[in-house]
């Protein structure tokens, strides 16, 4: 066999090898795409429903702590959204100092009590089911375009950041004496 024929044979072998490598790589890529494909639609549907139902249940919850009645002196069972959240919005400025709030459930300011309770409830449900969450309440004073965050409860330090694959409960609005409170729950996988 002369030199050029040998060289041609070598080239052909290399080409064959390259084709085999390409075919194997394509096969692997194909398999990988199939394995990582998830049923996204169903996941989103479930998450959205879960976010909405959780928010709706949270907002209706009645607080049974006897300490809530301190200001009234009689027994009272405030509702989380209608009473406690409104109280938190009205007295938010004094919250950091542990100042005045109409309800003193658990001996705490309404905002502090809401943070503790909602975290506890969300941890025992959404958190336990392997999801991360973020509950945000923003107060919009008359003429304000940027709301003031009065409640920000997260499952971890990060919660459910904007870039993450998350679903929302849609805003739950509460009209108070000083402005509008917008409550949203975000749920991520």
């Amino acid at each position: 066999m002369n030199r050029s024929a040998r060289s041609k044979l070598g080239q052909m072998e290399i080409i064959g090898l390259v084709i085999i490598v390409i075919l194997i790589t394509l096969g692997m890529l194909f398999m990988a795409t199939f394995s990582f494909k998830e049923n996204k639609q169903k996941k989103i549907f479930t998450r959205e429903l879960l976010a909405y139902s959780t928010m709706s249940a949270l907002m209706k919850t009645t607080i049974t702590d006897p300490g809530c009645a301190q200001e009234y002196g009689t027994e009272t069972s405030p509702q989380l959204e209608k009473d406690l959240l409104e109280d938190c919005a009205l007295n938010y400025d004094s919250a950091k100092l542990g100042g005045y709030s109409l309800y003193r459930c658990g001996g705490q300011h309404s905002c502090a009590f809401l943070t503790t309770l909602t975290k506890q409830l969300l941890d025992q449900t959404v958190g336990k089911w392997g999801k991360t969450y973020q509950l945000q309440s923003k107060l919009y004073l008359a003429g304000d375009t940027v709301g003031k965050t009065i409640l920000d409860v997260k499952s971890s330090s990060q919660g459910c950041p904007i870039g993450a694959e998350r679903d929302t409960s849609k805003p739950f609005f509460l009209n108070t004496e000083i402005g509008l409170v917008e409550n949203v729950l975000y749920i991520c996988d």
């Binding site: 879960l50 709706s56 009645t62 027994e75 959404v126």
Partner: peptide, 18 residues
């Protein structure tokens, strides 16, 4: 799992407990 409100009217008083 699905979160829910559980309404209880058996506790008496003027408020319904959720």
């Amino acid at each position: 799992y699905f979160t829910l409100t559980l309404k209880d009217e058996s506790l008496g008083g003027e408020n319904i407990h959720y």
